[in-house]
């Protein structure tokens, strides 16, 4: 079925109209206090001067941004040039998050499809099974994953046991380990929105496509994927954005070479070595990046129509 037409304002809605503002106040208060205020605080902090041992001095400064983008050599006496260290970390983070998102999509889409095409009664059981690992704290799950893939962990012992490899595969402290960790952390965020989209998918559309001479592959590409696309996009965003800022998986499973933004920010707010304005500045840059790409995406979507 095609969706229902635009819903008109019913008489009931009109009666509630004068109450709309006061009724929305609590929502606005919560969003304001827990979302806007912290973000604003971050933006303000990023323009302040750092205090040793953490904290800030209320004095305007661009030092944090300067530190991020501009290099003046080890002792600050060389001519200014672009600082590549942090941009490199950003780039690596984007890459890691993208790979993790791709992995989630690769596994999550068939999983969601499988669940959504079961008889209705058993779907909730499958969904329940998907969420079970998430009853355990993320930290513990990430540590367990490390135990599983370390040199003398079960995975390597199994691989050596069946003679597939002669020595242990060095998995811990690699990009792959971090990607696996991120994938494992966020997989349900991919499965659930795609499941919701596929469950709503009208399979008569696939039949109609086949009836009109589309092969299975073309039916998938021309009809099914475009129709469930909103679910896929929601899943990708829900995996990509937290992956980008994640610090548990890179900290526990990766090494110095797999350092990601999340860990960098985390470090700035920890202990006496921290630098709050710098941490705030990285957060602001990260947030702007995400917002900008979302805006571009929305623009592209609209101009396509």
């Amino acid at each position: 079925m095609a969706g229902a037409g635009p819903s008109g304002k019913s008489g009931k809605d009109a009666a509630w109209a004068p109450l709309a503002l006061p009724l929305m106040l609590p929502t606005w208060a919560v969003i304001g206090f827990f979302l806007l205020l912290p973000v604003l605080l971050m933006v303000v902090y990023s323009f302040l001067t750092k205090e040793f041992r953490g904290g800030v001095i209320w004095e305007f400064s661009l030092a944090a941004y300067d530190q991020f983008f501009i290099s003046r050599g080890l002792f600050g006496d060389e001519p200014a040039s672009i600082e590549w260290t942090y941009i490199g970390i950003f780039w690596r983070s984007l890459w890691q998050a993208a790979v993790a998102t791709g992995l989630c999509l690769l596994i999550g889409f068939p999983t969601a499809w499988f669940i959504a095409t079961r008889p209705p009664a058993s779907r909730s059981i499958w969904l329940f099974l998907v969420t079970i690992p998430y009853w355990v704290n993320l930290l513990i799950r990430t540590v367990s994953l490390k135990f599983l893939i370390r040199d003398n962990g079960p995975l390597n012992e199994f691989l050596m046991g069946i003679g597939l490899t002669s020595g242990p595969l060095p998995l811990v402290n690699t990009n792959l380990a971090v990607q696996l960790g991120l994938f494992y952390s966020y997989l349900p965020f991919m499965v659930l929105p795609i499941y919701a989209a596929v469950e709503r998918y009208n399979f008569a559309l696939s039949e109609a496509a086949a009836d009109l001479y589309a092969s299975r592959w073309r039916t998938l590409r021309e009809i099914t994927l475009p129709v469930v696309k909103p679910g896929i996009i929601a899943g990708c965003l829900l995996v990509f954005i937290p992956s980008l800022g994640a610090f548990l998986a890179p900290d526990l499973l990766g090494g110095a070479k797999t350092f990601m933004i999340g860990s960098l920010i985390d470090e700035q707010f920890k202990g006496s070595q921290g630098n709050w304005p710098f941490g705030a500045a990285i957060s602001v840059i990260l947030m702007s990046l995400v917002l900008l790409s979302l805006l571009f995406y929305a623009r592209a979507q609209r101009s396509q129509k």
Binding site: M1, A2, N202, A204, E207, A208, A210, D211, L212, V227
Partner: peptide, 18 residues
């Protein structure tokens, strides 16, 4: 179905919404 020279008007139309 995609190789039969037969087309169907479905009961609930099944128009492609996108």
């Amino acid at each position: 179905p995609d190789r039969r020279p037969v087309n169907t008007v479905f009961q609930h139309y099944a128009l492609f919404p996108h």
